[in-house]
Amino acid sequence: MNIFRLSGDVCHLVAIIILFLKIWRSKSCAGISGKSQLLFALVFTTRYLDLFTAFISIYNTVMKVVFLVLAYATVSLIYFRFRKSYDSESDSFRVEFLLVPVAGLSFLENYSFTPLEILWTFSIYLESVAILPQLFMITKTGEAESITTHYLFFLGLYRTLYLANWVWRYHEEGFFDQIAVVSGVVQTIFYCDFFYLYFTRVLRGSGKMTLP
């Protein structure tokens, strides 16, 4: 464990908690892409199947459980409890355009052709594109509440910190996970445009982020 990975995990947890609390307290999921949250729940489900077969550490197990519980709790808020406020009109990204290529690639490019490994690879590839429905929804509505942009900021920051973690681990341990690194770079690139808008708009105190 290193400071980059730990702070990355903390940013990830903060992002998920920000979103959950925003929906819970405002009793509304307006502006939130339910599809992205479904994809994230799928990412955690396919990645954490080793929860019961491989014990890494207390921290690892606890964080996996917390991520899974919060992901499904957020999805249930969006699609059940506050479904009247769910804007399915604007959440129109065709997720099959993500799932099919990601599933195909995970069968082609993986470390070993076993169910657990293919599902893990699927979760890595899926995570790099899971935010696209949310980013698409923001471009469609042309705006995002500032709390939603803070959620996206921490979510983007978490994988950016993981890139630093991989540089560190390569330097310190010679550890290099090509699939995770390549996907992590792609994932972070998708946030670059958002980061630019976040720093130039939201942090300038304009509250809401409105797209040009």
């Binding site: 990975r5 491989a54 890494i56 690892n60 964080m63 991520f67 470390y111 550890f175 996970d177």
Partner: peptide
């Protein structure tokens, strides 16, 4: 190939 059996990252 990395030691991909142990997935120690979240």
């Amino acid at each position: 190939q990395p030691n991909f059996t142990i997935k120690d990252e979240l």
